[in-house]
């Protein structure tokens, strides 16, 4: 990726009690020249200290609000800094920094507002449990029906967006349902998007920290409740 893109690319990481993993995650990104914003979502451990020590900008929520809320905080902070490209990245080490250039390049190449990472295109999802694969595919079908977006992976936290794309996003879902909310807002705003194959590497730590299969029910309830309320 040209150095110009790296300089204008901000990576937003929402983190909650990720002191164990976040140092390596930030190190992999800063070594490529990206600016990293970590939103510490009220962690009880040293997430903020570790993130700051590894060169990230740290914004600390006064208490735990949820991943969606932290993501919105990170987006606003990146926009305040004049970011041209913003990448959302998980804190638990399941994403690869080497996928970021493909995402940002896809934005430029396809003149898209969003480049959505997908673990179901060309590249394999490493150690993806079968049940989760089924649930993720069902989520993609649900998203296709509700938003009209033809995505293959509706709940991938690795995505890139342009400044214009980020300005259209206003996350109101504080918890896990924000991933579906982003897709709905992409559809509602008529933004252009492209899917890019990325590798998601599941390990013991990320499996313990990440979404559980039962979270799917809460996501559906949150999305339903949002539709009832103005």
């Amino acid at each position: 990726m040209p150095a110009y893109y790296a300089r204008d690319t901000w990576v937003v990481i929402a983190a909650f009690n990720e002191a164990w993993a976040i140092g390596n995650v930030i190190g992999g990104l800063t070594s490529e020249g990206y600016r990293v914003i970590v939103v510490d979502d009220g962690s009880a451990d040293d997430t903020a200290v570790v993130a700051a020590d590894h060169g990230a900008i740290v914004i600390k929520h006064p208490f735990n609000l949820g991943q969606g809320a932290a993501m919105q905080t990170g987006l606003e902070a990146a926009l305040l800094n004049g970011a041209e490209f913003i990448v959302t990245f998980d804190a638990d080490g399941q994403h690869r920094a080497s996928d970021v250039p493909q995402l940002v390049t896809a934005l430029v190449k396809h003149r898209a507002h969003f480049a959505l990472g997908s673990r179901f295109l060309d590249l394999p999802a490493v150690n993806l449990p079968p049940l989760r694969r089924v649930l993720l595919l069902l989520a993609a079908v649900f998203t296709r029906i509700t938003s009209g977006l033809k995505v293959t992976d509706a709940h991938n936290g690795l995505r890139a967006m342009t400044r214009k794309g980020a300005l259209c996003i206003r996350l109101r879902q504080n918890r896990m349902a924000h991933a579906s909310e982003i897709l709905n807002q992409i559809a509602n705003c008529g933004l252009r998007y492209v899917e890019v194959p990325v590798t998601i590497e599941y390990n013991q730590y990320s499996m313990a920290k990440g979404q559980k299969s039962r979270d799917l029910l809460m996501i559906l309830l949150d999305l339903f409740a949002r539709r009832l309320h103005q």
Partner: peptide, 15 residues
Amino acid sequence: ELITVLARRVAIDQA
């Protein structure tokens, strides 16, 4: 939602 907006403002202002 209102608390979230407020907390976000506090967090960014502190930053």
